[in-house]
């Protein structure tokens, strides 16, 4: 030991076979266990969501005033007189989401194509942040925009046919809100297509446009499909735009010019008021939320699966 100072760089003298044996490191094990627990906590969140929503939803269906069949088949939702037909809320969720997707998919895809195929680095540096800002604006602000900017414009176009509250305005603005999401996911999909494919097209005498639209775009199609699915899931779950702009009456209609309440807007409105716990009304909200959760869960799972398949294809 006293020699260590004089020979700082020599290997330790004397090797015992036990030196390399695995040692007990209690603190390491505790840390790993803690980290695993923290990671596992996220699963606990999902389980809680299912239990909480499921439990209250069961209470709702257990109520004598409610039947499961009525819930999934009726088109009238009037808790005051004991009518709970989810279609009155689903119809407007479908309508607003469909409008949003019709706006967001073509625009988002075009934006992605422009950014990935045409834009110079300089143009990109300006255009990309615009989309990022759009993505960062709180949805309640989009609600304000829908009600106080888009609706008045629609009123000058459609006149008497359209009310202050309508699904068209909410859907259009929701489309703008989802646009950045679709565009950035599509861009990722486009850039994931290997260079060699693009080069193959160029080598055949394709113009850059032909290469991107006829070769790269079809190759990225499943990734773009995943983007659309996530977009749908976002539209279905979006609350504030519809709560502000599409009206507060549950009504079975697919006419975008009419006012109708979506599933999310209904939950927001009813729970925002004074509602006594454990009433049928209160429990019905959990049944709606459970449906929302399941629908978005399935959509997200499909999208993730598509994306992972897509990645595999090019790895």
């Amino acid at each position: 030991m006293q020699n260590t100072r004089e020979q700082p760089l020599s290997p330790p003298s004397g090797f015992r076979p036990g030196d390399l044996r695995r040692k007990m490191r209690l603190s390491e094990d505790i840390i790993e266990a803690t980290l695993f627990f923290v990671g596992f906590l996220t699963i606990f969140i999902t389980i809680s969501i299912v239990i909480v929503l499921g439990d209250q939803a069961l209470l709702f269906f257990a109520d004598p005033a409610v039947t499961v069949w009525e819930f999934i088949s009726s088109t009238h939702w009037q808790p005051a007189i004991g009518e709970f037909g989810i279609w009155a809320l689903v119809s407007s969720t479908l309508t607003t989401s469909a409008i949003a997707i019709l706006v967001a998919v073509p625009l988002g895809l075009s934006a992605a194509l422009y950014l990935s195929e045409y834009a110079s680095p300089k143009a990109r540096a300006i255009l990309k942040p615009v989309l990022e800002v759009l993505a960062g604006i709180p949805t309640v602000v989009y609600g304000y925009f829908a009600l106080l900017f888009v609706t008045p414009i629609l009123q000058t176009i459609f006149g008497e046919n359209i009310g202050v509250y309508n699904m068209l305005s909410a859907g259009l603005v929701m489309g703008i809100m989802i646009l950045p999401l679709i565009s950035s996911m599509s861009e990722d999909a486009l850039s994931a297509v290997p260079r060699s494919l693009r080069e193959a097209a160029y080598a055949m005498g394709a113009t850059p446009f032909e290469a991107s639209v006829q070769v790269v775009l079809p190759a990225a199609l499943s990734g773009i499909g995943a983007a659309v699915i996530v977009g749908i899931s976002r539209a279905v779950g979006e609350t504030m735009i519809v709560a502000v702009a599409s009206g507060a009456t549950s009504k079975f209609t697919f006419n975008p010019l009419e006012a109708a309440e979506t599933m999310t807007a209904h939950i927001a409105r009813i729970s925002g008021g004074d509602l006594s716990y454990n009433s049928v009304d209160y429990n019905s909200l959990f049944a709606i939320a459970l449906m929302l959760f399941l629908v978005t869960l399935v959509l997200n799972l499909i999208s993730q699966w598509v994306v992972s398949k897509f990645r595999e294809q090019y790895e």
Partner: peptide, 15 residues
């Protein structure tokens, strides 16, 4: 590029 065709190192057929 139409007049000078190219075959690449790794086969890269279109999907």
């Amino acid at each position: 590029r139409r007049r000078l065709g190219m075959v690449f190192q790794k086969p890269n057929p279109f999907p």
